[in-house]
Simulated assay, not measured.
Amino acid sequence: MSSASGLRVETDKETGVAVVTLDRPAKYNAIDLDTAAELTATWRQFRFDDSVRAIVVTGAGDKAFCTGIDRSVDVPQPSGPYSIDDPLIAIGPKANDLWKPVIAAVNGMACGGAFYLLGEAEFIVAAEHAEFFDPHTTYGMVSAYEAIYMAQRMPFGEVARMSLMGTAERISARRAYETGLVSELADSGQELEAALACARTIAGYPAEAVQGTVRALWATKEAARAQALAHAPHLITLGNLPPEQQAGLFGGRGGGYRVR
């Protein structure tokens, strides 16, 4: 199964493993509205496809796994301070009630809205050249959903540092592995095969037992996560700079990132 919208889906019926690829390498796999909608539809379709027992999500090319929402996308917002429309809120498997195991294979940059996907994967395999950062504060935006997702996977101080330092610092794959965000490091170009090896093993086990285990794992942090996410829209509404001021910050920033 494939799509022209920026998402490629391939399923191996023999092994029971599907690969979901963000396929916009020229845009560093940034997600536009069509791709966001297709991600949602794909996860929901997998709920009803018994031939798919494990999934790997990755990005095309070697520059980026995903760099969040495509900044050229115009997302109209409702008036008033009580709600926001977040086009990425339903791009993850758990947001779509999918309890089949999902493994992320990260190559290159993973930043901003990429954490909506990484935060809902069971675990992450990363290439040695991968790097993680959260640009929100640099550009006058609240890191709410992203910080909450990462706080489920990393020590509090590491999440706080990444969220607050913005574009001034990128976390290397090695550092991400040391802090528990990444479960396996692979040679560059081998991260997908490493993730697939795990997925094939898991897909070979009885599906009911695997999916029950996934559900049990997520139940351990469900209440705290749901409570934190309920605050996110209000924090974003209150803390984000107006779009025109954000645009000024984006236009005036150059490179000069630091890796630790």
Rank of each mutant, 00 (worst) to 15 (best):
A151K: 13
M162T: 06
A160C: 09
E128W: 08
I148Q: 04
T137M: 12
I171C: 11
G166L: 04
R161I: 09
S143A: 15
G140V: 08
M162V: 09
V125G: 04
I171Y: 13
S163C: 10
F123L: 09
L118S: 00
F132W: 02
F123N: 05
S172N: 06
G157P: 02
T167L: 10
T167S: 10
G157Q: 13
R153E: 02
F133V: 08
M162Y: 07
V125L: 05
A144I: 03
E158K: 10
E122D: 15
R170L: 08
A121R: 04
M162R: 09
A147R: 13
A173W: 03
M162G: 00
A151T: 09
A173P: 03
F132L: 03
Y145H: 13
G119L: 03
R153A: 05
P155E: 00
L117K: 06
M165E: 14
T138V: 07
Y145N: 14
Q152D: 13
R170G: 13
T138Y: 04
E131P: 01
A147H: 10
I148A: 10
L118A: 01
S163N: 06
M150L: 15
E169N: 11
R170D: 05
E120Q: 15
A160Y: 07
I171V: 14
T138H: 07
F156C: 03
F123W: 11
G157V: 11
F133W: 13
H129I: 06
A126Q: 01
A127H: 07
M150F: 06
F123E: 07
T167N: 11
E128P: 02
M165S: 15
V125P: 07
E131S: 13
F133H: 12
M162A: 10
A168F: 13
E131R: 15
H129N: 14
F132Y: 09
G140Y: 02
